[in-house]
């Protein structure tokens, strides 16, 4: 199983903590998913932060703070520094957003912020695209994990660029990789794991489902199925039919 900066996770599920109808629904979804990582953020203090912190700590999972909403290197770096103090972890989900409509990462700012944070001892989980050159630069910057998007955040469109994601996985077989963002249905999680990704990170598809706990469980089962299938060395697809039942010994009945 892949390691995330020295941490081996029992579950391939990483789950966000936003958009749930209530704290109880959030906790139920985490329990149902078996997720080992929870993403969180920082926002202006307005009361309630302590209750949320207690809720998250009660989940007993690894905390992965994000820099969501940051559009510049400086914003992202300062947010990461504040997150490290607040949550007591070197882990940071690095988001440097470059495009308002698609929330696509700014690849140039992402590499620069990753370089700064890695040099300061952060363990960076960069939210990136499937771009191979960008991936290479992030690894050179010191990242040991990559988190390519499946599709733009919150869209539920699944794996938008299968060729690109397969290519990325094949190019860096030793790097821990998480499909982050865009997953809408469990079948897409299974496919991501079948491709060889090490984990999935999602939020909206679970939190906004009519029954978040059931959907969390469905994603967990699908991800686990995909992981098992990947490890089982799948057959290669072929265009021509090939009978599975032996022809030898078939009766002459004409």
């Amino acid at each position: 199983m892949a390691e995330f900066y020295g941490v081996t996770l029992d579950s391939p599920m990483m789950l966000g903590t936003a958009q749930y109808p209530s704290p109880k629904v959030l906790a139920d979804a985490f329990a149902a998913s078996g997720a080992g990582v929870a993403t969180v953020s920082l926002r202006r203090e307005a009361g309630g932060g302590q209750d949320f912190r207690a809720l998250i700590e009660g989940l007993g999972v690894h905390i992965l703070p994000n820099t969501a909403g940051c559009h510049s290197v400086k914003e992202a770096v300062t947010t990461a520094q504040m997150a490290r103090e607040l949550f007591g972890t070197d882990w940071i989900k690095l988001e440097v957003i470059g495009h308002a409509d698609t929330l696509q990462p700014d690849p140039f700012g992402l590499v620069e912020a990753a370089r700064i944070l890695c040099s300061e001892g952060f363990e960076v989980f960069p939210y990136t695209t499937e771009d191979l050159v960008l991936a290479e630069r992030l690894l050179q910057a010191g990242c040991e994990v990559l988190m390519p998007w499946g599709a733009p955040i919150g869209t539920g469109l699944g794996l938008n660029n299968r060729y690109g994601l397969r290519s990325l996985r094949a190019q860096f077989p030793e790097v821990a990789m998480v499909i982050d963002a865009g997953l809408g249905m469990p079948s897409q999680a299974a496919e991501a794991m079948e491709m060889g990704y090490d984990a999935i990170l999602l939020n909206t598809a679970v939190a906004q489902a009519g029954d978040p706990a059931a959907m969390a469980r469905a994603f967990a089962m699908a991800a686990e199925a995909g992981r098992l299938a990947r490890g089982a060395d799948p057959m290669a697809p072929r265009d021509m039919a090939a009978p599975s039942t032996p022809l030898i010994g078939k009766a002459w009945l004409e």
Binding site: G16, T17, A18, Q19, Y20, L26, T39, V40, S41, L42, R43, R44, E45, A46, G48, G49, Q50, F52, R53, I56, P65, N66, A68, M82, L86, F87, I153, N203, T204
Partner: peptide
């Protein structure tokens, strides 16, 4: 001055 607290996030 910015004063930040833990918050839900994805």
């Amino acid at each position: 001055v910015e004063v930040l607290a833990p918050m839900k996030g994805g």
